[in-house]
Amino acid sequence: MSVHRNEASTAGQAPRTPAEQRWLEAEHQVLARLERRFPQDVVLGSRVVTRKLWIDIAREALLEVLRFLRDDPELRFEMLIELTCADFLKYPGHQGPRFALLYILYSFRCDAYVRLKVWLEEDDPRAPSATAVFAGAEWPEREVYDLYGIVFEGHPDLRRLLMPDDFTGHPLRKDYPLRGRGERDSFPVLTREES
């Protein structure tokens, strides 16, 4: 437990139920394990946000970490619960890279979660594709590519998932205008006479 490097410990971060307590402890144990297993430049930091531990992972080592978490016989984080992205552009008090890729894994063996965060710079939004480790990452990665413009290297079929194929731009980025850039007004007009 001594490895806990929590920079943002504020009131309201303490676990409220025994289950939350257990999950948080398990997350700290996983963090300690990762720090033992990998060299220093892989686990970049961690912080507790609303009673949950987020572990920052270096982009280059992401696949290695995921594979370790999945295959280690004592951990067995075999289920990719969530793969998504967040845009921290102009986020109050935020400094550092703009995008964060978020990975949440679950272990049936330990009944524990692990939350990984990979920070990506604005001018280099690339990440290794997790499909090599979790096949189910294919569509979430397509969604992230579609809405945030993160390019996943090694993805088998990186196309847009939600927006039309001819759409330009990535609408969940914070600098994308809410009403779009005129896409919604760009259809041919069918009049009564010609239809």
């Binding site: 205008p177 007009v189 069918l190």
Partner: peptide
């Protein structure tokens, strides 16, 4: 739903 993905009235494009 006044957002980028919503058509603001189908009468813009069909009678």
């Amino acid at each position: 739903f006044d957002t980028y993905t919503m058509i603001q009235g189908v009468d813009k494009f069909i009678p």
